[in-house]
Amino acid sequence: MDPSAPPLLNCSRIRKTYGDLVAVDDVSFHISPGETYGLLGPNGAGKTTVISMIAGILDADSGKVWVAGEPMHPRATKAKTAVGYVPQDIALYPDLTACENLMFFGRLVGLAGSTLKKRTKEVLRLTGLSDRADDRTSTFSGGMKRRLNIGIGLIHQPRLLILDEPTVGVDPQSRNAILESVDTMADEGMAVLYTTHYMEEAERLCDRIGIIDDGKIVAEGTQRELIEKLGGHDKLHIGITGYGLPAANAAAMLDCVIRVSLGDTAMELIVRDARSSLAEIVNTIVETGAEITGIEIEEPNLEAVFLHLTGKALRD
């Protein structure tokens, strides 16, 4: 990824309403070549609507999208050449074979002749479908359909790959394969726009993440940057036996401890940087005579960030 390169995708204040519902509200972000950008948000947040405008399937009510320097809109055939779009719902002809599906969409993106044949073969290999190339896709498993669905978006080696929740309903093995191939593609210089409501996927894949809720991007940055917005606080679960109150009081006196709550067999502490302050906390508790039965550190993740920013859980 070259940070000085002009962004491959630039999306400026796009907006889309359906009647009274503001599905997408003033969304702006950009993606550089080689960068993987994650749009993380719960169902109904507006991810697919954003993507539809970026792919030129839907006209924005206002705002602008540029792909590779070309303005994107439903009639923008030039900008669309740079985009590989993988829809959220599998979009294949079930009565055509994997090979025929790839060739069909390959022709629509402008491939022909030996290039088309070569790319079809390559994509079949990449998606692990070479030995099922001539089978109708109606005979495929869910995971195989997903992989072909993605493969079609890759047929012309687009500069911007758009993946809309590509792992929904996929078995863990296929899911891993998909995530790995996205990594590979980004390494090869492709810009990737990836939407998901799985926090782990965003954490694992994305260089930068935009958190979207109710049509708005509520926070944006690297995973580290987003977590720092929480103030770098960790959560400690400490299991104890014996009388807990003195231990809790002692811990609360420490500088690194922000808040303590005491239960019957455990206490929960919100602390600054748990790893470096752990020894001090443990010592303090042991000195009060309480016995520690277990310690668990919970570092904040995107889930916590999301909860913090929107007041709701990422998953329903």
């Binding site: 779009y85 829809p87 002809y93 969409f105 629509l108």
Partner: peptide, 11 residues
């Protein structure tokens, strides 16, 4: 099947 829509995402 979503293929019509997908066609429109191509040039």
């Amino acid at each position: 099947w979503g293929v019509s829509r997908r066609m429109l995402a191509t040039p």
